[in-house]
Write a protein that binds this DNA or RNA. Structure first.
Lengths: 195, 195
DNA sequence: GTCTATATTCTGATAGAC
DNA sequence: GTCTATCAGAATATAGAC
């Protein structure tokens, strides 16, 4: 199949989403205009509407793909074992995955309020599913006597908040390596829920 | 001194900042127009410029006042003692203070990117001063043998991230009381840095 | 001190040429 | 598939009446 000259649907589509992700993460959804996204891609504003029905769908699609990929990746990384082993896997997975995708987590946690009601509800389901995975581990650890967590729901929120924070300050090439950071965070989390 | 009828500078000024705080926290700086702030206050858009030179200054003033009050309040709450005592005071203070001012912390942590460069630099100094207070406690605890914190800077970030998270889900009248939440968070933090 | 009116720029989105 | 041109409305901010 010969590619028609001037036809770039297979390239421009992904580039639009990449540009939107980058700019939404950097400046915030509301502060980014369709013209700025177009300029980042290197097309005119009108051309964007070949790839998305509107700006809101662009945000929703980015979030949905991110959450689905996150859930899928954690499903693969969660290879079982004792509750402490699973918790370590979760902590290391979460930090590692998010440090590789700082823009994604930024919009996933900061731009929820810019989703319209129906889209928000759908993303919220996926977000809660991810949280529930951690809650399950904490409850299993309580049952096995490895953990002493008075409220697994609260502890899960606290743990995720703590781990998420790493993306706000970590930079590759800084004072600490990823491996060191991962280990220190895991150590704090381990002690915080220990029996 | 008789008040002139129709003159409300002493009332409207604070109302403008209150309205801006509320709307910036709810919808985000970029999504809030001067017209919406004016509508919330009950005046016309043009009248706002009697109380602020522009929208950016409104955001900056809110952040600056918040950070200065936060630093001042922690200065009062930090009554000394052993490192574990001071850490407990910090944890309880931080949660308590922020649950009372959810809008303030929301903009302080979410709208930093909407400050222009000069304003950002000034707010960042205040933010780091607050963080440094916690780092000092952790270092004192390492020295006294109460804590075993391999990297106090990182641990301070992790702790603040964890504590900040409470504002994203806590609602008065929910499943858990403030006192319970405060105690559970403090317990997790205590264990996470323990020797 | 607040209003109305306005200047100017930008917004999301669409229509039609190529 | 991308462009130019354009619409209708909203944005920040200012000027001048009252």
């Amino acid at each position: 199949m010969a590619r028609k000259s001037g036809s770039h649907a297979d390239i421009t589509g992904p580039k639009v989403r990449e540009a939107a992700l980058k700019l939404f993460a950097r400046d915030g959804y509301a502060a980014v205009s369709m013209r700025k996204i177009a300029a980042e891609v290197g097309v005119q504003a009108g051309a964007l509407y070949l790839y998305t029905p509107d700006k809101q769908s662009l945000l929703y699609d980015l979030m949905k793909v991110h959450m689905e990929e996150l859930l899928d990746a954690w499903g693969q990384a969660d290879t079982g074992g004792t509750p402490p082993e699973r918790l370590e896997a979760f902590a290391r997975f979460h930090i590692h995955y998010h440090l590789d995708r700082p823009d994604n987590i930024f919009i996933a946690y900061m731009e929820l309020r810019n989703l319209d009601d129906a889209n928000f509800a759908e993303i919220e389901v996926l977000r809660r599913r991810y949280e529930q995975g951690l809650i399950d581990i904490l409850e299993a650890g309580n049952a096995s006597g490895d953990f002493a967590v008075p409220d697994p729901k609260l502890a899960a929120m606290a743990a995720i908040s703590m781990l998420n924070g790493v993306t706000t300050w970590f930079r590759d090439g800084g004072r600490l390596s990823r491996e060191t950071v991962e280990t220190i965070y895991w150590d704090m989390l381990r002690k915080s829920v220990a029996a």
